[in-house]
Design a protein around this nucleic acid. Sequence first.
DNA 1: CGCCGATACTAAACTTGTTGCATAGGTGCT
DNA 2: AGCACCTATGCAACAAGTTTAGTATCGGCG
Lengths: 187, 187
Amino acid sequence: MSLRNAVLAALINREASGYELAKQFHVSVANFWTATSQQLYRELDKMETDGLLSARVVAQERRPDKRLFSLTEAGRAALTDFTRQDPRPTTVRDELLVQIEALAHADVASVRSSIESRIASSGRRLESYEQRLAEILNGRTEEEFLATGNRIGPYLTLQRGIIFERENLTWGRLALTVLSRRFPTSG
Amino acid sequence: MSLRNAVLAALINREASGYELAKQFHVSVANFWTATSQQLYRELDKMETDGLLSARVVAQERRPDKRLFSLTEAGRAALTDFTRQDPRPTTVRDELLVQIEALAHADVASVRSSIESRIASSGRRLESYEQRLAEILNGRTEEEFLATGNRIGPYLTLQRGIIFERENLTWGRLALTVLSRRFPTSG
DNA sequence: CGCCGATACTAAACTTGTTGCATAGGTGCT
DNA sequence: AGCACCTATGCAACAAGTTTAGTATCGGCG
């Protein structure tokens, strides 16, 4: 039932196909929720059945048809309802941190290169979030935007994502420094 | 299979009962993995069957017996093996951020109080992480510890948790400021 | 000309994770 | 005396999420 709310939130500003949502749930939305395309298609069908979404089929040239989903009144009401509930505590799952916790029994070279990959992917994420932030600000300063802008919600969640990825970079560099000091590469 | 690795990592330094692990998976380990007690008991049984853990029953006075689990050689080997694998990307699930993303259709008063709860719980977490950090440092400066200490892994994962909760506090206060500005409380 | 990758979706099997209930004595508060 | 909460585990049912496969068309690359 939680994915459902994330989908409702993702459809506030524009209609989208399952395919588009799947991509989004791997980039921007990934900041606070993730889902595979299979989960999404299944959930979208159920949500349509439950009257939270309406779908329209759009025929395309040289492409399969797509179904664009948008919120119904019931969908918007369900969303408001959800914002009244107590949110569950954040859950984080990070296999890299499990590997680090297990450092005493780890293959250090392998862990080191996993940290490097993490730094790289956080860098890419950070770039894409910052680009999306620039789109939301749309030329205004943060000051101007906060006084008058109308996408405050997405602005705040993006800020959280940006902070998170920046701290991933800082932490990753710290971890590499510590490792190179305590487990020097031979040579 | 992922919970399994988190359990192995949690048992590196000491044996523990299912009950103790369950508590730990709600405090320190919660930093990078979470699990309910039911999940743990089921997984511990399977891991014992698979030879990764050995259990010994300890009779107690005025308490039910408990089973203390510890790593076997096969368990340690499985852990090392896991550190050689590519860690999956971090997944974050945060209902509060979903509610914020939906701000345009939200019950703002309710969301505001959810942010306040989040600030409170992040504060509590931060305190308990900092206490655990002090235990690990055990009187040494970070400099001394990093040069000679032997629980580098837990130190690094704790650092990540501390940073995360600090940023939760910073972000929460930002969010409250923005909300009070754009949705002033009547009166 | 054959292969890869993107678009767009569907289906089914499988693994994980959550919730509710049950057992059973102990401690601590009012 | 009664209630809530802690220790310590287990089972069953259900909800949620993952994996693996498949359909079909197009554009670009070498």
